[in-house]
Amino acid sequence: MSFIEIKNLSKNYVNRRNTKRAPDDPEQPGEMKVLDDINLEFEEGEMVCILGPSGCGKSTLLRIIAGFDTASSGEVIIDKEKVTGASSDHIFVFQQNGLLPWMNVWDNVELGLRHMENEEEKNERIQEYIDLVELNGFEYNLPCQLSGGMQRRAELARALAVKPDILYLDEPFTGLDYLTHLKIREEVVNIHEYIGKTMIMVTHFIEDALVMADRIIVFSERPTSIKMARKLDFSRPRNINKDPGLSELRDEIFLMLGVSYVA
């Protein structure tokens, strides 16, 4: 039995604006099928990247696994327990604005540790993770006083500080400039090597998936099904251009997603 199991999971959205459908349409009137009978398994400690065309429901799936959203049918089982809501053992790193903007970096990192009884231990832990993401000196800055990359690192610190079993990353590099993107990607890879926690990342950057993932899952267009699931046994650090296996896989995924030529 795997650490995370997704069984026959489907998700329909009610689309109020579009209630007229063709008579031979198998879907219910006004319903939009986003996820169609998804079955997936994740092993403990695995870093999985989910790719797919935009609007394919990959973020929706992640939000259902995290317990923020409910499935229309099917279930998610984590460590033998059915997911019914969010849990502080599984932390979600948001695409944007995940920090509470009225709290400084320190207070944000403290969120997950606020029930720790030993004040000294707690403060040490907060400082440890702020240092880990190299934000020392910015403890008392509000999120709006930080750059996009620093905000993302602060959120990572907040997520990691609770020592979660699972980290969900929803397009965590979106909106960052290219260099910051690469740097934070490297940090996430290092963190994964260092703490070895299960990570599930949704992204639309194919290169990120190739560099980071133990396994890549490619989703089809709506209603979503799994088009490809591939284990990556390449050693890290990876270089897509120098490793023919990786660049071949990249071209294959690009082709699968409808892009035939990549410079």
Binding site: A66, G67, A86, S87, H90, G98, L100
Partner: peptide, 8 residues
């Protein structure tokens, strides 16, 4: 609210 739920 999701952050709030996530951190119980």
């Amino acid at each position: 609210f999701q952050v709030a739920a996530n951190f119980n």
